[in-house]
């Protein structure tokens, strides 16, 4: 299927925005201005983008501690995200959530989630809303290979099958759960096959190949949207950085990282493909590169200068009413 010029440019814009956002945080994090810890998504951009291109604002996604990419792919405001990561009052969550809790319900972003395996039960709830209300809404859970081993994930997959919910489980296999390789920690040969055993269609795709992810996601989201129940996709793409910023990554060899940048960069792969097939022009892609760079510059600049919340904000928004 031909995706068309506009869709490809949109996809590249989202992927490039994620990459630039993460590369910049990687740099800025060393200044000490970003509180707490951040987990970067660089390397996995094609997965979030290929999936979220299938979704509307009224569809929901649940994300992980490594959630910047999902947020950007789902349409969250990048400047407001940066403000949030800097802990500023004007952030997407008023500075109360931070990197691991970015959410924007108006964009269908149910929240990054700092609990590994935290989101699958929540996402089936969003799918349940669509089913009970009889809308054609879809909910998508992003989990890593680590979360694929959590009991909450198993419970959510089984219940989604039992209740035939419009949900898609995306398992982003980036090779490591924290500092332990998935070959060690995932007992099954394949996360997709394990998902399939719950009673839903499941496929494995190369997560660095935007086109492969896009096609698999389109099929799964259509299945959900037309009332045919849940699906699962295992998409493999290694992360470029550590589990968290500052992770010395002693569990990875230097060769692995060098090779990854050379052969496993989804942006390079995308660009090579579209230029080879003459789907979009190099100029158009270069133009996006410049726009994104400017946007991230502005976002960082704005976030640095913005005000922190005040002590009054400490006590608000615990309850709707109390």
């Amino acid at each position: 299927m031909n995706l068309g010029n506009n869709i490809l440019l949109d996809a590249y814009h989202r992927m490039k925005s994620i990459r630039e956002f993460e590369e910049r945080i990687h740099v800025e994090n060393t200044t000490g201005e970003i509180p707490g810890f951040v987990h970067l998504y660089a390397g996995q951009e094609a997965v979030a983008t290929g999936v979220c291109l299938q979704l509307r604002d009224s569809d929901y996604i649940g994300s992980t501690h490594r959630g910047h990419g999902h947020s950007i792919a789902k349409g969250c405001d990048i400047k407001a995200m940066m403000l949030e990561i800097y802990g500023k009052k004007g952030g997407l969550c008023a500075g109360k959530g931070g990197s691991m809790h970015i959410a924007d319900f108006e964009k269908g972003m149910l929240g990054a989630n700092a609990i590994v395996g935290g989101n699958p039960p929540l996402v089936i709830g969003a799918a349940l809303t669509a089913k009970v209300k009889g809308t054609d809404g879809v909910a998508v859970s992003f989990s890593g290979d680590g979360a694929s081993n959590q009991g909450t994930t198993f419970e959510a997959m089984n219940m989604a099958v039992v209740l035939k919910l419009p949900v898609v489980f995306i398992f982003e296999n980036n090779g490591y759960g924290e500092g332990t390789g998935c070959d060690y920690a995932v007992g099954a040969d394949s996360i997709a096959k394990r998902a399939e055993s719950f009673g839903m269609p499941a496929v494995s795709v190369d997560g660095t190949d935007f086109f492969a992810v896009e096609a698999a996601a389109r099929e799964a989201v259509t299945r959900a949207r037309t009332g045919q129940g849940p699906s699962a996709i295992e998409a493999s793409a290694m992360r470029f950085y550590g589990h968290f910023e500052g992770d010395p990554q002693a569990y990875r060899s230097a060769d692995e990282l060098a090779e990854l940048r050379k052969t496993g960069d989804c942006l390079k792969i995308f660009r090579a493909r579209v230029e080879k097939d003459q789907l979009v022009t190099a100029d158009a892609l270069d133009q996006i590169d410049r726009e994104v760079a400017d946007l991230i510059d502005e976002a960082v600049d704005k976030a640095r200068k913005a005000d922190f919340p005040t002590s009054d904000d400490l006590l608000t928004d615990v309850y709707v009413s109390y």
Binding site: P120, P121, L122, G125, T129, V132, E155
Partner: peptide, 16 residues
Amino acid sequence: SESAIMGAAAGAAATG
């Protein structure tokens, strides 16, 4: 599946 029940309730509540 108590986790799935509680999570589904929370997710459904947050979405309408």
